[in-house]
Nucleic acid binder design. Structure first.
Lengths: 341, 341
DNA sequence: TCATCTTATTTAACCGATAGGTTCGCATTG
DNA sequence: CAATGCGAACCTATCGGTTAAATAAGATGA
């Protein structure tokens, strides 16, 4: 057998027409159960596989989703990435469960995603996973939206931005980790992380932080820092030099920042958690290996992937969906002052 | 304009036949340069994109490569993964550069990859990226080979296994890191890592280790360990209990193992590198954050991705290729005894 | 001037599966 | 006995390109 078997080959062997084969393989009730089985049997023997391209062409859909990862070249991706890998894993699995394939690509903002993937029928919809300076692609988003592309974005919902997004509940995450610190009895707090428009996630975390402190008499301050170790260094040294002295606890908007903070404190001879508590956000794998182990907030990536895929498929089928927030999970280690396990 | 523009729409607008449009868009010299430009101009205005499915169907190729990640459920993937993400990044970029798309999927060994991807014309070839117990899929490999699937595998070449593989030069990597330790003047060595058939990479690293020690009078021993932190713990405690006492230096077959070793040594009150040197292999991101920083061997993932894609495309085009080893790069930190930067 | 060769386009045959419409055969019913 | 109903399988147009083969118009040469 030199050439790949087609449905005609099966039709010939089964003594039926080719269209009957197609129906039989799709388990159509229009064809008698016995012929159906006979056809399927032959298909199995021949190792027959329907040609995806022919099928897609005819059905005008690809049963494929494109996952676009876009990165801000200025950010240190080697430290952020693991989170996306976890997402990738859960997204591929969710896609597979729904019978969709996943096309993955790293993108820059210049590309015309709509044209590249949806117009060409390479994919039925897009999932955007990005990090870095978000403002850069707000314009892109509205463009996609205008084209009626089926898009699902990972990240915090932003009122001004068009389209649907799925993200973790940064507010309650920030709230719960702060409450945990409060339960230790700490009186003064510092939040390290940008809270401007370009970092909506950090902003929500900060709001959760503020909300938790709410009616307490605790003092608090805030320092800017992008998502990087260096920014953590810098912010920590500012804290160390502050005339007011160190707070009891530091809430970092991201684990990477916390890692930088821990290093800086260590250099300065400040002990964690004896002298000061430090917590992060993200639960990157590194968090389990810092000394002391970093108490942090974990995002449910498995659920995130499922939700993204699920809602995207709904959108493709024409059902309207809405933004969605996923619950976070407090991961307690030692940096908050809890005893070692 | 309600429906997606097709080549017929362009043909109509340009006043030429549809086939001329197709040729013009493919920059065929068969069509006059002026009509070519006119057609391309119109296509641009309409935001036309060729339908990938139609094109693929006719050309009998998909311009897509499938990347199959398969994992051994017993291994702790959260620690191994970052390496694969780096590979993923370089592979997507290499594919994009060659005009190929990348389909990504996590797989288990039961699936019929050949049928799933190549027979269905979803992809023109496969790249296998796996870890864990390699024996499990040796059989799978020969199956693929029998089917003449176009496959490229990441990993050490194994004589008995069919198919081509691209891997890093584990031998010279093990050799160079061991030589570096020798330059510190250490006299006795331990290698931690499995050296059986199921871990061909570790085996090569071990051989490099032995080769470096070669004619020296240095003593050396070896302990089994799979690629996990726990295995590192265990091996280290064996070392600590050994009547012969601790060696001067430990070469771990993987960074994760080294991380476990470092932890165990720390608990036992053994200082690194003052009392004993420890080195790893892989340069996982964690290696930069251990205390002390882990000296290790880095694999060139960017080059690896390129080579995998390049050779796979060659295979698809029918040109025979051969196994390929990539150079490694020694990353010196403090755990080997070198001063802090 | 007519035959010959280019060059530019068009015609038409696919690629392989899907789905709407139709036909065929057989059983039921007025 | 002819008319009707119905399930099962078949016929055929179609999806949107690609490309070999056919054709038309224009240029070259004897």
């Amino acid at each position: 057998m030199k050439h790949k078997p087609t449905s005609f080959d099966i039709a010939h062997l089964a003594g039926v027409s080719q269209s009957t084969v197609s129906r039989a393989l799709n388990d159509s009730p229009l064809v008698n159960i016995s012929t159906r089985q006979k056809v399927q049997e032959i298909a199995r023997e021949l190792n027959y596989q329907v040609d995806k391209n022919a099928s897609n062409l005819r059905r005008q859909r690809s049963s494929t989703i494109a996952l676009l990862l876009f990165e801000d070249p200025t950010s240190d991706d080697s430290l952020v990435n693991p989170f996306f890998l976890a997402m990738l894993g859960s997204i591929t699995k969710a896609c597979a469960a729904k019978g969709y394939d996943l096309l993955v690509s790293f993108q820059n903002l210049d590309n015309n995603w709509q044209a590249e993937y949806e117009d060409s029928h390479k994919a039925d919809g897009l999932i955007l996973l990005g990090y870095g300076d978000y403002r850069a692609y707000a314009g892109k988003l509205s463009q996609l939206h205008q084209h009626d592309t089926h898009v699902m974005r990972w990240g915090a919902p932003v009122a001004q931005w068009p389209g649907i997004s799925i993200g973790c509940d940064n507010f309650s995450g920030g709230q719960s980790v702060t409450r945990h610190l409060l339960s230790h009895g700490y009186q003064s707090y510092a939040f390290i992380g940008d809270i401007g428009d370009k970092a909506p996630e950090f902003q929500s975390r900060y709001e959760g932080f503020l909300n938790a402190l709410g009616n307490t008499k605790c003092r608090h301050q805030q320092y800017d820092a992008i998502s990087s170790e260096e920014a953590g260094h810098l912010a920590a040294s500012h804290l160390l030099e502050a005339p007011a002295g160190l707070p009891d606890a530091i809430v970092c908007a991201a684990d990477i920042i916390a890692v930088g903070v821990l290093q800086q404190l260590k250099e300065a001879g400040v002990r964690v958690p004896e002298d000061i508590a430090v917590v992060g956000f993200d639960n990157i794998q590194l968090a389990a290996f810092t000394t002391p182990g970093l108490t942090t907030v974990q995002q449910n990536t498995a659920q995130a992937g499922e939700k993204l895929v699920e809602n995207l498929l709904l959108a493709i089928e024409g059902h309207p969906t809405d933004d969605h927030l996923l619950a976070t999970n407090l991961v307690v280690r030692q940096s908050c002052g809890c005893r070692a396990k």
